[in-house]
């Protein structure tokens, strides 16, 4: 009995983690059939398109990939989701990528052979608290309260750098109990109720909305994270790369992204 409870709980966590990766946003139903006629006029888009995208884009880009394939029969979009810095490293080491979508301009700058990057979305920080807000968190100032359990991202990763910027701008000295290695780890700690609050992205709160609640705070505007996307000069499938970037920047792409909580750049 004990073990069964533990297993069930484990499954819940797995589901929570998955929710972060593959959220089936309602915009998923954006009619692919209607778009196929319009984009079939664009010539020479076929074959496999390798998209390297930041981990925080996992849910939305998986959806966009499916929609793109439906709109362009004969294409296959494959994804490599990971931290932006790791992806930039892989691309510079010669990984066969067609498109790179980064969670931070800095990682895009690190990539040498690329087309002109376009900022396609932005993401703002939000306070994530466990359902019911047991720690009675009201705003950013609670992060300076030693009696509250707080998780932040480590300053070495983008969400931590953004949090650092916010705290510097507001003069609040946070008292974190843990500096997590990425935003999903921070979110997991909130979902399990191990911490009273964490600073994560708005999109992360939405992706786990059955487990966590989000509290917006005005100071978030001090650290808006821009996401650039670019085709790569050494792309094995240059035409496909351009078509996919165009699709992300199209109204249909924007709809999927905004449903997941991303803002316009």
């Amino acid at each position: 009995m004990f073990r069964r409870t533990a297993l069930a709980a484990l499954a819940t966590v797995a589901a929570l983690t998955m929710a972060g990766c593959g959220d089936d946003s309602p915009a998923a139903s954006s009619s692919p059939s209607s778009s196929s006629s319009s984009s079939s006029s664009t010539p020479a888009v076929s074959g496999t398109i390798a998209v390297f995208a930041a981990a925080s884009l996992t849910g939305t880009f998986t959806q966009l990939g499916k929609d793109f394939e439906a709109a362009n029969p004969g294409t296959k979009v494959t994804f490599n989701f990971a931290g932006s810095s790791a992806l930039a490293k892989q691309i510079n080491e010669g990984a066969p990528a067609d498109v790179f979508a980064s969670a931070a301009p800095k990682n895009m700058d690190d990539v040498k052979d690329k087309g002109t990057p376009t900022n396609f979305v932005s993401n703002t920080l939000e306070i994530a608290v466990p359902k019911g807000n047991p720690g009675k968190i009201t705003g950013l100032k609670d992060f300076a309260d030693k009696s509250k359990k707080i998780a932040l991202c480590a300053v070495q990763v983008p969400c931590g750098a953004a949090a650092d910027k916010v705290f510097k701008a507001t003069g609040i000295t946070p008292q974190p109990d843990s500096l997590e290695q990425d935003v999903k780890a921070a979110l997991t700690k909130v979902g399990l109720g191990e911490v009273d609050a964490a600073l994560v992205y708005k999109t992360d709160v939405l992706s786990a909305k059955d487990k966590v609640e989000g509290i917006e705070f005005p100071e978030a505007s001090k650290a808006v994270n821009e996401y650039p996307i670019a085709t790569l000069t050494k792309a094995p499938n240059a035409a496909g790369a351009q078509a996919f970037v165009d699709y992300v920047l199209s109204d249909k792409g924007k709809a999927v992204l905004s449903t997941a909580g991303f803002s316009a750049p």
């Binding site: 533990a6 484990l10 966590v13 399990l192 109720g193 191990e194």
Partner: peptide, 11 residues
């Protein structure tokens, strides 16, 4: 680590 949290964590 997650399993440990589920058993020995705050909740």
């Amino acid at each position: 680590g997650v399993a440990l949290l589920l058993v020995l964590g705050r909740r």
